[in-house]
Amino acid sequence: MERSKIRQVGAERRPGRGATSNFAGRFEAYVTEDCDDGWEKQEEKPLRTHVSIESPRSIITRNTSPDLPFDRSINPYRGCEHGCIYCFARPTHAYLGYSPGLDFETRLISRPNAPERLASELARKAYSPAPIAIGTNTDPYQPIERQYRVMRGILTVLLAHRHPVTIVTKGTLIERDLDLLSEMAARNLVHVGVSLTTLDAKISRRMEPRVPAPARRLKSIEALARAGIPTRVMVAPIVPALTDHELESILSESQSAGAKAANYILLRLPGEVGPLFQDWLEEAFPDRANRVMSRMREMRGGENYRADFGRRMIGQGEFSRLLAHRFKVAIRRLGLLQDLPPLECTQFRVPPKAGDQLSLF
């Protein structure tokens, strides 16, 4: 998408949103542009969040990516109201006929039948258990979870089946489910990763406008740790020349809050995320926009982004190597692990249904 063709949306219509534009998805046949036809325009109202309902026939998504530590995942929602401008999941909205820009934050899709579909898929004779990753695309604890409770339904099914799960979130709503999570943790069935991009509340509010403040996310780490739930801090994404200097302080604060492990991921700008991020950067931090993108290209082989397996998460070049060294030194000093102990898969079972023959043993 050429940045010159991006359709900007006035700031008065997007309070609390991350993207600055709402261009058509790459699969759309037509592109609309604003033009002055000489008539007085009516005042446009601020963008509101709309939620549609989807009933998927299957809920577990498989992948074979060599640099991902899981082979299956679940997405309770499509789109994310958190509005993180850097979200690498934005391009997936184009497959739905929506814009990866403001549509991604305002036109959301809930999957309320996900728990039912999950129970059905876990009951298949050919199913073999392995940890399911949740939150690797869009956040399962974004604000609409408070109403739709899809994630809580999924956890209820996983607990009943004694099935392992890993969760990644920025949402403090996860504390609502401590009862389920603590029971799963007692059986070694759950790991949680809390994503923390910066400790600066002002930067956070601009970059991830509807995400709980950094200090509040540290409180979530404390709550999870007190409940006995193995928790890692995910310093993700690291934005060079904007947040990279905070790496050690984020790790230190998270360790003090109770995190047992840590990892980091470099900013990724696939597809439409690149122009969206650059437009946001020039509006939010014009004094350092050139420096950020220059550093990004330095770490991406001269391009804004490269999707090479093994490098897409950490980059390449001297700055990338320095970042990796700083991370290793910091976690060694703080006693943080890079990997939490493996989850338990041998407890998996399919609960009996009403009318089923009960086992004698």
Rank of each mutant, 00 (worst) to 15 (best):
G301I: 05
P270S: 09
G16S: 05
S52H: 10
S294R: 12
E183V: 05
K328N: 13
L334I: 11
F348M: 01
V211P: 00
L155G: 03
A126G: 12
M313Y: 14
L281E: 05
R152Q: 10
R297N: 01
P66I: 11
M151R: 03
V9F: 11
D37R: 08
M207K: 04
E28S: 15
Y264I: 04
P46T: 06
E283T: 12
W39D: 09
S320V: 09
G310Q: 11
V211R: 02
F361K: 02
S252T: 14
C345K: 15
G302W: 11
L358D: 07
R17Y: 12
P275A: 13
M234E: 07
L247I: 03
R72P: 07
P66S: 09
D244P: 01
S65L: 14
V292A: 07
L266D: 01
G315E: 14
Y148E: 10
D179S: 10
L108E: 02
L102G: 06
E33W: 01
G83Y: 06
T20D: 01
F27K: 12
A225E: 00
P69N: 11
G301T: 06
G25M: 08
A289D: 03
L218S: 06
S195Q: 05
K219G: 05
D339W: 11
P140H: 06
F309A: 15
A114M: 03
